[in-house]
Design a protein around this nucleic acid. Structure first.
Lengths: 144, 144
DNA sequence: TTCCGAGTTAATAATCGTTCCAAGTTAGAA
DNA sequence: TTCTAACTTGGAACGATTATTAACTCGGAA
């Protein structure tokens, strides 16, 4: 199954109509692991689909978010960023470049789950957990 | 030593002039563990010190941040929140109320440090790390 | 196939949070 | 006490997001 068909399926599974706009936005998202802003998604799409409106991008991202197709990334800055990856993962915040990378580590997840099942936070029910790791790549190493 | 004197000292240590505005803002922050926004700090201060400007609050918070007196909290929403606690700690995001609480756990810190010294991220130098825990307090339990 | 209506989009206005700026004021060194 | 760099103020400007609304489009009923 090609990418387009997968994207259609994703929309259908979420119970969303497969409009052209949704297809291109979702396609842009799945191709893009740089945690884009709404604005940057808009610019990217605009090339191929010039009639799209920035409002549509915002609206659609919000619809996707409500249906679990994207997440907000917590950046601590003014602009919201989106993460097309809804699997469990963590984030590396690159201090030099203002970039964010996904970080996967199943072992870390297991460790945290184990820790919190032993050390419950009183009366608190955990739904989700994420580690934010701030730092930098060593010199002469490419970040990506 | 009383609170006011401590606050003066904090400013002096940071090499900052002890203006009235800075004193009241820092006082408001140290009294306030609810991770306030700039706006809410402004409203709080305005009662006692009506001539203060919102710009001053923003400017001052930024100066404090540069001097390590406060931190941004990464909320994933549009508005930036500030955290007067600069010790190592984590955050509970209460899904029902949009509140954020500090969460301390030395054992968790040790565990994470141990984990990442064993499992280094290739070429990446970690400077800071934070766990964001999302969830809710059980019914009939007060969140605070 | 046509038509209807709910859902969707585009354009633009409005709002919100934050930053910038020029002019006035002040803390604190000397 | 004087002087000056640092600071504050208010308002304008800005960028990001949300709201509004009229036009459009798709899928299903007839």
């Amino acid at each position: 199954m090609n990418n387009k068909a997968q994207i259609r399926k994703t929309l259908a599974n979420a119970g969303l109509k497969a409009t052209v706009q949704r297809l291109v936005i979702l396609e842009a998202l799945t191709d893009n692991f740089s945690h884009p802003t709404a604005e940057s998604i808009y610019r990217q799409i605009k090339k191929k689909y010039p009639s799209i409106s920035l409002s549509t991008v915002y609206n659609t991202l919000e619809v996707f978010r409500q249906h679990g197709l994207v997440r907000f990334v917590n950046t601590g800055s003014v602009t919201v960023r989106y993460d097309p990856v809804t699997d469990k993962h963590h984030h590396l915040f690159l201090e030099d470049s203002n970039k964010i990378e996904d970080y996967y580590n199943n072992e870390l997840d297991r460790l945290l789950n184990k820790f919190f099942s032993k050390n419950k936070i009183p009366n608190f029910e955990i739904n989700d957990m994420q580690v934010q790791i701030k730092g930098r790549y060593s010199k002469y190493q490419k970040a990506n």
